[in-house]
């Protein structure tokens, strides 16, 4: 983190990281019509964070996105997913039966769309949170990644 020989790397990374995150959300919300989905989007968001950590250091990353946040995010994601199942139960259907969310007859798709979008948000939170937690756990063992380590 000293000296100027990482300047190009840092400038390029600063330009790239927002694009990576936007691409992750594109993958997330176009999962209905294209390849990809919440699993891939969650991994891409985690990779953006890891790129930030590799270029700017783990301490800065942990200040921006604290570890308690990532592990809570992973848990909240699973709860969102499971919550949709209980929502369907309370609406009178089976567990995770999206058709029952709004009590629609077969052929109506609002419940399906809402259910899929909500569970995909849950998967996004769970995957990105868990992946970042794993990275923090591994990278947190060494104080700072030095140039000689490569």
């Amino acid at each position: 983190m000293k000296g100027d020989h990482h300047m190009i790397l840092r400038v390029i990374a600063k330009c790239l990281i927002p694009l990576i995150v936007i691409y992750a959300f594109y993958v997330q919300f176009h999962g209905e019509v294209g390849p990809g989905g919440a699993f891939q989007a969650g991994v891409i968001i985690a990779v953006a964070l890891i790129l930030y950590a590799l270029v700017f250091g783990l301490t800065a990353t942990m200040r921006a996105v604290p570890p308690w946040f990532t592990r809570s995010l992973a848990a909240v994601g699973v709860m969102i997913y499971a919550g949709v199942g209980f929502w369907a139960l309370l609406s009178g259907g089976d567990y995770l039966e999206y058709q029952a969310l709004f009590g629609e007859p077969p052929g109506e798709h609002h419940g399906q769309h809402a259910g899929i979008i909500i569970i995909e948000i849950g998967v996004l939170c769970a995957v990105s949170g868990a992946m970042t937690t794993i990275f923090y756990a591994l990278a947190g063992r060494v104080a700072e990644i030095r140039d000689e380590d490569w």
């Binding site: 783990l58 301490t59 942990m62 570890p67 308690w68 592990r71 937690t133 794993i134 923090y136 756990a137 591994l138 990278a139 947190g140 063992r141 060494v142 104080a143």
Partner: peptide, 12 residues
């Protein structure tokens, strides 16, 4: 992984 290796907060 977090339970085995810690959450990385100690090094921070």
């Amino acid at each position: 992984v977090a339970l085995l290796l810690g959450f990385g907060e100690r090094s921070l």
